[in-house]
Amino acid sequence: MIKKILKNPKLTADEKAEFERLVKANMKRAYFAALGFLGSHDLAMDVSQDAFIRAYRSFKTFDNKRNFFPWYYRILKNLCLNYFRDSKNKREVTFLENVKNMEDSSTPEDFVENEEVKEKLESAMQQLKLEDREIIMLKEFQNHSYKEIAELLNLPIGTVMSKLYYARKKLANEFERLV
């Protein structure tokens, strides 16, 4: 029944199956990319799914000889930018966790201290321009290679390295200011 409702004359059954496979293969990267932009679990889920819905509607235009994620990432980024434009200063900002606090050996004092560092880093990240935050998120938290980032942002690898350096420098300045 659901399959019938979803029947889209534009897509063949194989294409729909391929889309489902691509969603399942990329949903984590999609969610974390949205989380990096938006800083909220609920928003990250909604916006990453909305981007998949748009991708589904435009799936005919996707060149399957190319990587899906860079194509999808542009849709996602566009939606995130629209969100920023429409709702400034309404963001919840808790997207990080301190690895040290997940260790059993962490004392209550360490826990509080580590939480403070985490909160300051989150605040410092929020002070950055979107493009600086984006590149730090992609490299430091989503562990994309320079080559992958270059493909996602459509930049040469040398430029990615340079932008990453300057973004980290700005982050260091913001972080030092808060400490």
Partner: peptide
């Protein structure tokens, strides 16, 4: 700053 960043990870649902 890399050392600080290395101690953090994105919240995983």
């Amino acid at each position: 700053i890399k050392e600080v960043l290395d101690k953090m990870k994105l919240k995983n649902p």
